[in-house]
Amino acid sequence: MRLEILNSGYRPGTKLLFTLIRVFSRQAVPDAAKLVFYRPDFYGGRAKEFTHQAMRGSSEWAVADRELMAAFVSKVNECAFCIGAHSATAGQAYHDDAKVRAVLADVDSAPIEEGLRATLRMLGKLTRSGTVDAADMREVLAAGVTPQQIEDALAVCAAFDTTNRLADAFGFELLSPAGFAAGAKYLLKRGYR
């Protein structure tokens, strides 16, 4: 059930921003944007900064890899909005939508590097069960992933486990393929701020 709270209660400057987004993108303002602007002092400001750092901060993972992690965690959580948004963004970042679809269909047979595969498996287990153990970490390290890359991947997972739950709780409306593509273009250009 969609919560209508995302359709009202914004400051005049935010309303103007939303109008400009609609005019220039020719797309509806995504509910994800509405959520972070609804209560910026309580949730939005902190969430934007944490997510931006996880997704665009300094990391040995490419932006495309982190967007794929976001799509993968969202797939495990069955969050349709975030699967669409981050699949589109990862596909644009890689310039390879087929690669993204292959990973989401079957991470074990997808055409990706072993370190990324091991990391995605670990994130999948963490997302499904809420825990990982030393053996899981040893497997990721054995695949050539550094401890810092693991920490960076865990930050992506934390950001999207939270975002997925909010998207589902608020009933985020799915965008059209053109809407997801426009959002992906924005995220790749501007990030999450």
Rank of each mutant, 00 (worst) to 15 (best):
M1G: 11
M1I: 02
L3R: 05
E4L: 10
I5F: 02
I5M: 05
R11C: 06
P12A: 12
K15T: 02
L17I: 01
L17C: 03
L17W: 00
F18V: 03
T19K: 10
V23G: 00
V23L: 11
V23W: 01
Q27P: 08
P30K: 08
A32W: 04
L35D: 04
F37H: 15
F37S: 06
Y38F: 15
R39K: 11
P40Y: 11
P40L: 13
Y43L: 15
R46M: 10
K48T: 14
H52R: 04
Q53L: 10
Q53G: 09
A54L: 02
A54Y: 01
R56I: 07
G57C: 10
S58I: 07
S59D: 13
E60S: 15
W61N: 14
A62C: 00
A62I: 04
A64E: 14
D65G: 11
R66H: 12
L68Q: 06
A70F: 09
A71E: 05
A71K: 03
A71N: 11
F72Q: 03
E78V: 04
C79M: 10
I83L: 08
G84D: 12
H86Y: 11
H86N: 12
S87A: 15
S87F: 09
G91E: 02
Q92M: 12
A93P: 09
A93S: 15
A93Q: 03
A93T: 02
Y94V: 14
H95I: 07
D97C: 03
K99Y: 01
L104V: 03
A105T: 07
D106S: 02
V107S: 09
D108Q: 13
D108R: 11
S109R: 02
P111C: 07
E114G: 12
A118E: 04
R121Y: 04
R121M: 12
R121G: 00
M122Q: 12
L123P: 00
L123C: 15
G124F: 03
T127W: 06
V132S: 14
A134T: 13
D136P: 11
M137F: 09
M137Q: 09
R138N: 15
A143I: 06
I150T: 10
I150N: 01
L154D: 00
C157E: 02
C157K: 01
C157I: 01
A158V: 05
A159R: 08
F160W: 08
N164A: 03
A167K: 05
F170L: 12
F172V: 06
F172H: 10
E173F: 01
P177L: 05
A178Q: 14
A181S: 14
A182D: 04
G183R: 13
A184G: 14
L187W: 06
G191M: 07
G191Y: 10
Y192N: 00
R193W: 13
